[in-house]
Each structure stands twice: as C-alpha cells, then as structure tokens.
Deep mutational scan, measured.
Amino acid sequence: AKPPKTVTVKVEVTNADGETQTRTVTLTNLPKDLKPGDTVTLPETGQTARIVEITP
C-alpha cells in the first residue's frame, strides 16, 4: 500500500474572537484539484480554514 500523500498548506483560520490567523498545517489525502482560496476542515480542530498557499 502506498503511504498517504501529505501536503503542507498555509491556511487562514478565523478564531472565536473573529481574528484571522495564518497557520501552516500538514494534511493528508487532499483532493487533487485543491487550490488556494478553497476551504478545508482542519481535522484536529474541526475549524474551517481557507487555503492561502499549497507547498507541493
């Protein structure tokens, strides 16, 4: 079996106070056609994050 493909992405997350924070997260099994501006759900927090940058 192939190991899951991990991708490092820079995302913007809005916290409970309405502040936008930029975080770098490593995600696995992202859709192939994901692009900056799309939103993903962070598995560890369940927060919705907007992708700023994808590092191949």
Rank of each mutant, 00 (worst) to 15 (best):
A1S: 12
A1Q: 12
A1H: 13
A1C: 11
A1N: 11
A1D: 12
A1R: 06
A1P: 12
A1F: 10
K2R: 11
K2W: 14
K2H: 14
P3N: 08
P3I: 05
P4M: 11
P4V: 13
P4H: 12
P4G: 13
P4A: 13
K5M: 14
K5F: 15
K5A: 12
K5C: 11
K5P: 15
K5N: 14
T6G: 12
T6Y: 15
T6I: 10
T6V: 10
T6C: 09
T6S: 12
T6W: 15
T6R: 13
V7W: 15
V7A: 07
V7T: 09
V7E: 03
V7R: 05
V7Y: 15
V7G: 03
V7S: 05
T8C: 08
T8E: 06
T8W: 13
T8N: 06
T8K: 08
T8Y: 11
V9N: 00
V9S: 00
V9I: 11
V9L: 14
V9P: 00
K10L: 15
K10R: 10
K10E: 03
K10W: 10
K10A: 03
K10V: 15
K10F: 07
K10Y: 06
V11C: 03
V11N: 00
V11K: 00
V11G: 00
V11Y: 11
V11I: 10
E12C: 06
E12N: 04
E12K: 06
E12V: 12
V13C: 04
V13H: 03
V13I: 14
V13N: 01
T14W: 12
T14L: 11
T14I: 13
N15R: 05
N15P: 02
N15F: 09
N15G: 12
N15K: 05
N15Y: 08
A16V: 09
A16K: 10
A16N: 08
A16G: 09
A16Q: 10
A16D: 10
A16I: 09
A16H: 09
D17K: 12
D17V: 09
D17T: 08
D17I: 08
D17P: 03
D17N: 12
D17H: 11
D17W: 12
D17C: 09
G18S: 02
G18H: 02
G18T: 01
G18F: 02
G18R: 02
E19I: 13
E19D: 08
E19W: 13
E19Y: 14
E19F: 14
E19T: 15
T20C: 05
T20R: 10
T20L: 10
T20Y: 07
Q21L: 13
Q21P: 01
Q21G: 05
T22W: 13
T22I: 15
T22N: 04
T22L: 14
T22M: 14
R23H: 08
R23K: 11
R23G: 02
R23T: 07
R23Y: 15
T24I: 15
T24P: 01
T24A: 03
T24E: 06
T24Q: 05
T24N: 04
V25N: 01
V25F: 09
V25R: 01
V25M: 10
V25W: 08
T26Q: 10
T26R: 10
T26M: 09
T26I: 12
T26V: 12
L27Y: 06
L27R: 01
L27E: 01
T28L: 09
T28H: 10
T28C: 14
T28F: 10
T28Y: 12
T28E: 07
T28P: 08
T28I: 11
T28A: 11
N29T: 07
N29G: 13
N29Q: 08
N29L: 06
N29P: 03
N29Y: 10
N29M: 08
L30E: 07
L30D: 06
L30K: 03
L30R: 03
L30F: 15
L30W: 15
L30Q: 11
L30S: 09
P31G: 13
P31W: 15
K32F: 14
K32V: 11
K32M: 13
K32A: 14
K32R: 10
D33C: 10
D33L: 09
D33K: 06
D33Q: 08
D33A: 08
L34F: 06
L34I: 12
L34V: 11
L34G: 02
L34T: 07
L34A: 14
L34P: 07
L34M: 08
K35E: 04
K35G: 05
K35Q: 09
K35A: 07
K35V: 06
K35L: 06
P36T: 06
P36D: 02
P36G: 02
P36I: 15
P36A: 08
P36R: 05
G37E: 01
G37H: 01
G37M: 02
G37L: 01
G37Y: 02
D38A: 04
D38L: 03
D38H: 03
D38F: 03
D38N: 03
D38W: 03
T39E: 09
T39K: 07
T39D: 04
T39P: 04
T39H: 10
T39M: 14
T39S: 08
T39N: 07
V40Y: 11
V40H: 01
V40T: 02
V40A: 01
V40F: 15
V40I: 15
V40R: 00
V40D: 00
V40N: 00
V40L: 11
T41I: 15
T41N: 07
T41V: 14
T41W: 15
T41G: 03
T41E: 07
T41Y: 15
L42Q: 00
L42W: 04
L42G: 01
L42F: 05
P43Q: 05
P43Y: 05
P43T: 06
P43S: 06
P43W: 10
E44W: 09
E44A: 09
E44I: 10
E44G: 13
E44Q: 08
E44S: 09
E44R: 08
E44F: 09
T45M: 03
T45P: 02
T45C: 04
T45Y: 04
T45R: 03
T45A: 03
T45K: 03
G46V: 02
G46A: 04
G46S: 04
G46H: 04
G46F: 04
G46W: 03
G46Q: 05
G46K: 03
G46N: 07
Q47W: 05
Q47A: 05
Q47D: 07
Q47C: 05
T48R: 09
T48E: 10
T48A: 09
T48V: 14
T48L: 14
T48G: 03
T48S: 10
T48Y: 06
T48H: 07
T48F: 09
T48D: 06
T48Q: 11
A49E: 00
A49F: 05
A49V: 11
A49S: 02
A49C: 06
R50E: 03
R50D: 01
R50G: 01
R50K: 12
R50P: 00
R50L: 12
R50Y: 11
R50C: 04
I51G: 00
I51N: 00
I51L: 04
I51D: 00
I51E: 00
I51Y: 01
I51H: 00
I51R: 00
I51T: 00
I51K: 00
V52Q: 03
V52S: 02
V52K: 04
V52I: 14
V52G: 00
V52M: 08
V52A: 02
V52E: 01
V52C: 03
V52D: 00
V52L: 14
V52R: 03
E53A: 10
E53M: 08
E53P: 01
E53N: 05
E53C: 09
E53K: 06
E53F: 08
I54C: 03
I54E: 01
I54M: 06
I54L: 06
I54R: 01
I54F: 08
I54H: 02
T55G: 11
T55I: 15
T55S: 12
T55H: 14
T55C: 11
T55F: 15
T55M: 15
T55Y: 15
P56A: 14
P56Y: 15
P56N: 14
P56D: 14
P56L: 14
P56V: 14
P56C: 08
